[in-house]
Write a protein that binds this DNA or RNA. Sequence first.
DNA 1: TGAGGAATTTTTGTATACCTTTTTTCGAGA
DNA 2: TCTCGAAAAAAGGTATACAAAAATTCCTCA
Lengths: 235, 235
Amino acid sequence: MTNETTRDGAKDAATQSAVETAYHHIRHLILTGEMRSGDKLLENQLAAAIGVSRTPIREALNRLNAEGLVVLERYRRGIVADFSLDDAVEIFRLRAILEGHATSRAASRISEADLQRLQDLERLMETQFEELGWNEHLEGFDKLNAEFHAVIAAAAESPRLEKILASSLELPASIFNRYSEPVEVRTRRTHAQHREILSALKARNPEWAQAAMNAHLFSLLPTASGSLAHEDGAK
Amino acid sequence: MTNETTRDGAKDAATQSAVETAYHHIRHLILTGEMRSGDKLLENQLAAAIGVSRTPIREALNRLNAEGLVVLERYRRGIVADFSLDDAVEIFRLRAILEGHATSRAASRISEADLQRLQDLERLMETQFEELGWNEHLEGFDKLNAEFHAVIAAAAESPRLEKILASSLELPASIFNRYSEPVEVRTRRTHAQHREILSALKARNPEWAQAAMNAHLFSLLPTASGSLAHEDGAK
DNA sequence: TGAGGAATTTTTGTATACCTTTTTTCGAGA
DNA sequence: TCTCGAAAAAAGGTATACAAAAATTCCTCA
């Protein structure tokens, strides 16, 4: 899965539309921190880089704007959105409220197959963490972690809730790391919390599940002190 | 329904972009029930009707799709989204959670000017209700009511929360009426509830404000019995 | 040398043209 | 007459062309 020349950022399904290609490509640039807050998003430049015309680029930028990752104003250059500490806190508060609710619902609805999937995902995250250090570990972790949360969101069987969680409350990893505790501290606790959430879901105990998810998310609430260990390499 | 040649649906600000025009026009068609669930949204037809090219129509449809009012699939005609009873319930549940949270935050943040504005809005709704019956009353009421809730959402000072409430949890009035109690019953209670919310905000009591807003929204939770009085005129 | 501002360039907004896919039409064969 | 399927029509997806606005350049004048 870790091939190097996937020139369309994300999933490589048979024939992807141009706007999907553009959307995933640009979103990837932002979420991975390849483009940072304030960077200019020029339609022509992106079109050339991605190899489609401006039309799908514009659609993709509009979607990202609706999701809050890009700031667009009429006749003004689009820029990558800036996330202050307050923004990060706001996002995590809302995630806690909504994902807590989702987890509560999931507790009485989730299938055995999805429970198994969650267990597999968590086991994968933990073994990868043991084998590689947290350095190499990171990209893989983010993907698995995202799926862990996505499975729970889907199990809540509330399509609008799922959509909001997937598209309106994202925070670029680079920003999150800036405001969060050092990765290795955070990650160890995350594993324990994930296991607790899983236990609560298996017990089909909505209140416990909700509380465990809330604890998980509130423990990640960004702080002013931020990360003390991890400073991004480039200037 | 009153005037006949308002060719741009909503607000008529100085120079509106073509996509704004298209967006408000189509959104208005859906929310007022002029276009109903399942109706086809043909790009050419809308373009001709609104007087712009397909490009801004497509942008508008994409926005409405993201908001859940329109269903788009690749290479498939867009249609006005269908709202089942379950959808309506889901929307009100999520509104209750999020708008309750917003009201709680608003209680400790809202300005005196906004409190006054809320009082004025509520007084307007009530006097209009006395003067006109609930028949004529309706269009005006929806606008004032929407602003009442919007003022509170804004006072929460959580831009993402405000955006979600404004754009992801809408229900066309025609659908709401189908699943809700008769209008005159509902409206009388709404006035009392609005006054209670206002009192709680004035008292700057977050818990009370949140509970009052929750009571308001849960009292509107759509039911299978639905409206017994109001059946739409046309076949 | 620096500030103001007009001309140029760049960039975004919209319209149109063209291509691909879907939908419909309509005719052949059972 | 019904069904299947190919041809035609219609509709959406993308590229390009042109218009409007903003950003930049560069000249003028203090």
